[in-house]
Simulated assay, not measured.
Amino acid sequence: MTAEQSARLGSLYEQYGARMVRYSYSQLKRRGYDSASAWTVAEDIAQGMWVQVARDGARGPLLGDESLSEDSVRALLFYKTKHQVLGYVSGRAAGEVVVDFADPVTCNWLCPLMPSGCALVELPVYLATMVEALPEQERAALLLMLDGLDPRSMAEQLGCGDSTAVRMAESAVLMLQIDNPELSREPVALESLPQWEREALSELSPERRAALLRLESTTRQALLLKHQGLSKREIVKRLGLSHDATAAIVRCVSAPGAKAAPKAKSTGRRANSKFAQVADALRKDIKAMRPGDRLPRRVDLMARFGVGSRTIDNAWAVLRGEGLIEANGAYGYTVARSQDDMRQAA
């Protein structure tokens, strides 16, 4: 590679590296891998994709064609990553189409397009409002995952185990799909379902029934069995799902606040609000820190300021939007490495 191509590869990796890992992870989870192994394999798959891009060099469009639009670059990267996943899973990497970014589920959750900021800053208003309405723990886990933190870092920030952190994020996505059917696929025909599913669905409200008809079959069946009173162990045995997958599904109907969370009406931020005060205090702390220094954990900040995780999320969103902090997978949130940003903070 030339120096220019090497620099372009580094720029692409910095912008899309974490996204490729998350996308590989989502693809592996859909194929039945458990959370722990999926993250490990996803990192290897994404790394293999970047190695292939480097080997292609000027022969490949990503490094050889500077006229490519950003949408084309993004589509090619997801396309190459998906082929790597297929190659790992089944030994073949052909016959797949480019990811459909017009699909709201794919765009908003499987490959969140947030190159520079926190979810609350970058998400469209309609989607940020939906996220704000989630129960506190699930919302916090989802935002951390969207920021690119790995399960261990998510767990440290949330004060729980790795698998629990991932389950909370996955439950958050499912809650969003249930409460906002427009984020899900087209509904299946009620007549095409087994008799027991039709009978179980008939016991639900029309709104709930319509939402469940848009979900994947195993997810819908697990929710219906939970509604009928079956335990997680019984659901695992009947449907053949993994324990982690079942726990994530069941959590979406049993999490504290899952049924009573009010819809947020606004995502505006007041200058004198608690999170603004927390952001001001952290901004002063950053002045005395060096680029790459690790910020305190979420749970420590909650204890320090006597606030909830939602306040900490909003404070982080402000600092992320200003470019003063960044998500660093293995270390949670760190001071931004840009010297320009640090001078602005000072």
Score class of each variant (00 low, 15 high):
Pro151His: 09
Arg139Tyr: 01
Leu225His: 06
Asn328Lys: 11
Glu170Gln: 11
Tyr331Ile: 02
Glu182Tyr: 13
Val166Met: 14
Pro291Phe: 01
Glu322Tyr: 03
Trp50Cys: 03
Leu76Ser: 12
Arg167Val: 04
Pro104Trp: 10
Lys284Glu: 13
Arg209Val: 00
Ala315His: 05
Asn180Gly: 01
Leu215Ser: 02
Leu241Pro: 01
Glu132Cys: 12
Thr106Trp: 03
Asp179Leu: 14
Gln84Ile: 00
Met342Ala: 13
Asp280Lys: 14
Arg209Phe: 03
His83Phe: 02
Tyr88Val: 02
Arg55Met: 13
Ile235Val: 03
Ile178Asn: 03
Arg320Pro: 01
Asp313Leu: 13
Asp179Tyr: 08
Asp300Cys: 04
Gly64Asn: 07
Gln228Gly: 14
Leu127Arg: 11
Ala141His: 09
Tyr16Met: 01
Thr218Tyr: 15
Asp34Thr: 14
Ser116Asn: 12
Asp285Met: 12
Ala327Cys: 06
Val253Tyr: 11
Ser69Phe: 02
Ser153Arg: 07
Ser242Arg: 11
Pro291His: 02
Glu70Trp: 03
Trp39Ile: 08
Ala54Tyr: 13
Gln52Tyr: 07
Leu113Asn: 12
Ala317Leu: 02
Leu143Glu: 04
Ser171Tyr: 03
Cys252Asp: 04
Asp44Trp: 09
Thr334Trp: 00
Ala155Glu: 02
Met130Asp: 12
Ser309Met: 15
His227Ser: 14
Leu149Tyr: 02
Thr267Ile: 13
Leu68Gln: 08
Leu295Val: 09
Ala255His: 07
Gly95Thr: 01
Gln137Leu: 12
Lys274Glu: 15
Met154Ser: 02
Leu215Cys: 02
Val253Phe: 06
Trp316Ile: 12
Glu136Ile: 12
Leu77Thr: 06
Tyr88Asn: 05
Ile45Pro: 11
Leu63Pro: 07
Val278His: 04
Gln195Pro: 00
Asp244Tyr: 10
Ala169Asn: 07
Gly257His: 06
Leu239Asp: 01
Leu113Glu: 10
Lys82Asp: 14
Gly91Met: 03
Gly292Ser: 09
Cys160Arg: 07
Asp44Val: 14
Phe101Ala: 05
Tyr79Asp: 13
Glu216Phe: 06
Leu146Ile: 14
Arg8Gln: 08
Ala133Tyr: 02
Gln157Cys: 07
Glu186Asp: 15
Val131Glu: 05
Gly10Met: 10
